[in-house]
Design a protein around this nucleic acid. Structure first.
Lengths: 229, 229
DNA sequence: GTCTATATGCCGATAGAC
DNA sequence: GTCTATCGGCATATAGAC
């Protein structure tokens, strides 16, 4: 059974391992285009020239295939960054923007994360622990970068850093969703760059409160009265 | 058949219409907790004391029930805003923050939008047109508010407004996802307020570029342009 | 390692009794 | 308006041949 090979052991033959990753790639494609609940083992099997029983021989169960798929995607991303080790300082913000530029040419990867992360909040979803840990880790990394930046540039309340870190990840995710819905209307990379810049600058110097932009105190009838300059 | 009653006609008996909305409320709950693909008509039927055949009598098909459910949610939201008509000026930004405060006590509503909007990007999903139109409309409304604000406060390139509008909706969605995963770690309303404020301020005065924060020893010019008031 | 065949179950939708 | 009964389809997973 494949269930015991956790770290991708070397005990299997090369052709087997090749098929293994071939299935994982197909799973990314299917879970991305149809979701986990709606995508089927037969869909994945078709894409690699097997039957669903063949896929189950490699992964034991659909749920295990999902978890292996998420782990596989993560380790592939990390591999791309080996020695280009994730920057731990303010460079991280530039790295996030570069990631957005890369993602604009990887709709499949973006979609599988968008679809599965949202699906993971549903009842007893097997991917939920994965995404909980993923976001907790990412927020910690972004917060660390903020702390380094704040030491360099000035001071800021630690509470603001947590909120800003979550906001940066949030705006990246949200823009991806809108981009998947309207690829022609959303410029993923440019918008991500703008938003991250806005949030980083807000941490370093907050600027005026929103309420200071209020056009008036009370609207009497609420008819079409325009705020004048 | 209920398929022809588009606007919620008055031709049906009150008890029937009551059951109708009862089913729609159950559908919000089920589609939110299990998703559209995974939630079943029997789940929804159980929640209102019917069989799945009873639900189908009211809505004809599962797909139609989903569309009616989305329309029902939208018109309920609008009803809450009747006479409190959505502000069309800079007040809109404060309204969005207030919405986030309200949402922090409506996890079910937040979850159904989060789950279904992401699911809608999957293959031939029946809710896709709904969310495409929803985001296009919301971006237009936020952009309108930005244009009014920019007339008051200064000038800005129209391109920035589009990017900022998408970013504001994005950060709201993304924070909702993280909040659903970690309710104790994310302060939905406070974070939303911070992020919207950051983006609005960035539109009015951009501030330094991200690359100016690079920690690299060699930096072209030593100036780090210190931001505004 | 991959297949065919099958067990088992759930789903959406329809038909017709009450 | 709601039910029971049922049809047809498809899902995951298992068993065993090759």
């Amino acid at each position: 059974m494949a269930s015991e090979s956790v770290g991708g052991a070397a005990r299997t033959r090369p052709s087997t391992r090749r098929k293994h990753t071939e299935i994982l790639d197909a799973a990314i494609s299917i879970f991305g285009t149809k979701g986990y609940a709606n995508g089927t083992l037969a869909d994945i099997a078709d894409q690699v020239g097997l039957t669903h029983a063949g896929v189950l021989h490699h992964f034991g169960s659909k749920q295990n295939l999902l978890l292996q798929t998420l782990a596989y995607r993560d380790e592939t991303d990390v591999k791309d960054l080996v020695e280009k080790h994730i920057p731990d300082g303010p460079e991280l913000f530039l790295h996030l923007v570069r990631t957005a530029f890369a993602n604009a040419h990887r709709a499949g990867i973006v979609q599988v994360y968008t679809v599965l992360s949202a699906e993971s909040v549903t009842e007893d979803h097997p991917a939920r622990p994965f995404f909980e840990e993923r976001y907790a880790t990412l927020r910690r990394e972004v917060s660390d970068a903020f702390r380094v930046l704040c030491e360099q540039e000035g001071v800021t309340e630690p509470d603001t850093i947590d909120v800003a870190s979550a906001s940066i990840l949030a705006v990246m995710d949200g823009l991806q969703l809108q981009w998947l819905l309207h690829p022609a209307k959303i410029e993923l990379a440019g918008a991500t760059e703008f938003a991250i810049r806005a949030i980083v600058n807000a941490v370093l110097s907050p600027g005026p409160e929103l309420s200071s932009y209020r056009s008036d105190e009370a609207r009497p009838t609420g008819d079409t009265d325009r705020p004048r300059t």
